[in-house]
């Protein structure tokens, strides 16, 4: 066989070092797996988990008031003050409130848009809507926040639109910040819900209708349970991104502060890194609580 091939001018396959490596990994599939996972594991372990752990530890350190240096010693004052200092509790509750409001508003807006996109619009219209949802994502976050600063201002377009109705622009306030945040995170909520709806076959809606269910019943009994994991995925984006925000609130929030502002000022002007770390634990704890409660509903079982 070999001779026939070489006689026909077909040369044998050369045994190169790359070939030996390939053969080795083929023979020992477990090593292949190890080699594949080494880099991502290193990244996740060192850069991500280690940094988070450092943050956790730092929260229990303190700052020497006289020298301004960080003193490495176990100290619970920072963490305790999170629950006792009225500034921290007020800002925490306010941040949670805004994050919840933004999440609920975004889901309410995203559901009909995603449904229209997935189940009603034709292919052409679908592309147009998809582009108009994705396009703002390519613009800078800061640009969008400043654009809303102009929209929300006393002489802005919102005032001009609302004035004939006898209403006023919310201006630079918590409402202004919530509206702006809701706008900025909306695509992150629409996209997963749209993805979830795409996975609901159209004939399930027909089957439901065929069995006598009217539109609302089909939405409640068939579509909603099937896209619940996607809604939760979207809500995690809106909720966690709002929890961590400190730029939008500074641009359109007037004098109000959110958790992010407190962390920022503790890292910067206040020079209190341990307090900043302690404050950073709050959104992490809230997200953990949120994910745990979501998991308990069983909504993540079918992911």
């Amino acid at each position: 066989m070999k001779n026939e091939l070489s006689a026909a001018g077909v040369t044998a396959i050369a045994v190169t070092p790359a070939r030996r490596v390939s053969s080795f990994f083929y023979k020992y599939p477990k090593n292949r797996l190890r080699a594949l996972i080494a880099l991502p594991a290193l990244w996740l372990g060192l850069v991500y988990v280690a940094a988070l752990l450092m943050l956790l530890v730092t929260a229990f350190w303190t700052v020497d008031e006289f020298t301004g240096n960080t003193r490495v010693a176990l100290n619970f004052d920072n963490v305790i003050s999170l629950f006792t200092d009225p500034l921290y509790t007020t800002v925490t509750l306010r941040t949670i409130g805004i994050a919840l409001g933004v999440t609920i508003a975004d889901i309410t807006l995203a559901l009909p848009i995603a449904f229209f996109m997935s189940k009603v619009a034709g292919p052409k219209l679908k592309t147009i809507i998809a582009i108009s949802i994705l396009l703002p994502l390519w613009a800078s976050y800061l640009v969008k926040a400043y654009a809303w600063r102009s929209v929300l201002s006393d002489k802005g377009i919102l005032q001009w639109l609302l004035a004939p109705l006898g209403l006023n622009t919310p201006g630079y306030s918590l409402w202004g910040a919530a509206i702006t945040l809701g706008y900025i995170w909306l695509p992150y909520v629409i996209l997963p819900i749209y993805g979830g709806l795409e996975k609901v076959p159209g004939n399930l809606l027909e089957a439901s209708s065929d069995l006598g269910a009217k539109t609302f019943t089909t939405l409640r009994r068939v579509i909603f349970p099937m896209i619940l994991p996607s809604i939760i995925a979207g809500s995690i984006f809106a909720f966690s991104l709002t929890l961590g925000d400190y730029i939008t609130i500074s641009i359109v929030g007037g004098p109000n502060q959110m958790l992010g502002n407190l962390i920022y000022s503790n890292v910067g002007t206040a020079n209190n890194l341990p307090m900043a770390a302690a404050l950073a634990l709050v959104p992490i704890a809230i997200m953990f609580a949120y994910l745990a409660s979501v998991k308990r509903t069983g909504a993540l079982d079918n992911l």
Partner: peptide, 30 residues
Amino acid sequence: FDREVNTVFQDYALFPHMSVLENVEYGLRV
């Protein structure tokens, strides 16, 4: 839903999040 006909679909169109019993109960439930 305003016709006295029912359909058996080509690819069955069963509700994946419901058990067999819940699927069959669906029309009675609504």
